[in-house]
Amino acid sequence: MVDDSAQLYTIEGFAAAFIILATAYLISGTMSIYTPGDSHITDMQLEQIGNDVLAVMDTPTTQGGESELVGYLKDWNTDGFNERFSNLLNNRTSGKDTLKYDASVSYRSDTDTVQNAPFFSSQTRTNYEQAVRVTRLVTIPESTDLSSHLPEFEKRDQVVLLEVLIWRS
């Protein structure tokens, strides 16, 4: 009879090798390295909250009424805007978040070019922030005169684009 005891030892060796390999793979695979490319996940959350805040502020409370965002823009009420926007942006179940933002207004001027002017910034930018941009179209009425804040401003019913850069500081 052929002695096949060695075969069992060989199989055992294979099995042991597999276990070691599988364990090594398991350990190396469950480690995740957070690279700058992964910041998309947090960017998405920032963009979502920014859009939500703007949507809340641009929703009129009465039928056919004017939203508070229109009010802040046509009166150039930066303090009122800052208070409301910061509050909504940094609202948390407990405590306050540390999100900062920089708002600017883009508009079509009387020379038919699109211009951009700063509206309010809660922190001076260094331009190294990992910021996301959210925007909202706002219709401001003809009675509005913002020519002292917006160069070449045309006084008429018009749609302006409120742009907000949001970042975590």
Partner: peptide, 29 residues
């Protein structure tokens, strides 16, 4: 939708508002 629903804005003015939106989106977005 909001502009269309605003009766106080004439059709000619609405055309200007569409132009605003188009210009802003091509330039800024």
């Amino acid at each position: 939708a909001a502009v269309v629903a605003t009766a106080s804005i004439s059709d000619a003015e609405k055309e200007k508002l569409w132009k605003d939106i188009e210009a802003l989106y091509i330039a800024r977005k």
